[in-house]
Amino acid sequence: MITGWVILGTLGVVLIGLVVYLILIYNGFIALRNNIDRNWSNIDVLLKQRYDELPKLIKVCEGYMQHEQKTLEAVVKARSLVNQARTDEQNMQAQNLLTDTLKSLFMVVERYPNLKADRSFQQLGYRITEIEDQIADRRELFNESVNLYNIRLEQFPDIIVARGFHFTKRKLWQIDPDHRQDVKVAWQNG
């Protein structure tokens, strides 16, 4: 009789333990999901900072780069696309485009030594490069948190909780497939 009660009592404690464990898993999913959202928002903070710095940069460049209107217009256009983006997908694409146009701008600047020597341009250039580095780091962090979440979704015993509470996969930050190609460098002779 006692043995039966002991087994029952032990099973009861194990059951409680399992419930607590499942609660921990559920809370873990919630924390992970919120971490992803937070990391996404943290990228947005930096993107907004970059967005705000751009008009100053363009204004400084305009004075020196009369012959590079196309490049400057491309930056302005990319910036406006960021503003017009309605979905995360569109926003991601617009941000990627803006990053590319900025890279082109900094490449073109090499041809303008006076602009490169300008103190305001140096400061803005440094600031934007700093923000770009931070954006890259935070994208990595975002992708890492998404990856952790997605791994958990497929792991046992987490998969039981994930299926039961309809936790779904999240998308990683992806760049435009065109940018995976190698950069073509053309050397001028003479």
């Binding site: 924390a31 971490n35 990391n39 890259a136 780091d137 990595e140 890492e144 948190s145 958990r152």
Partner: peptide, 18 residues
């Protein structure tokens, strides 16, 4: 689980929070 679920940040781009 907390250690496993927290991605490693870089100091350069550290955001506030855990």
């Amino acid at each position: 689980r907390q250690v496993e679920n927290t991605p490693t940040s870089k100091v350069r781009s550290l955001a506030l929070g855990m």
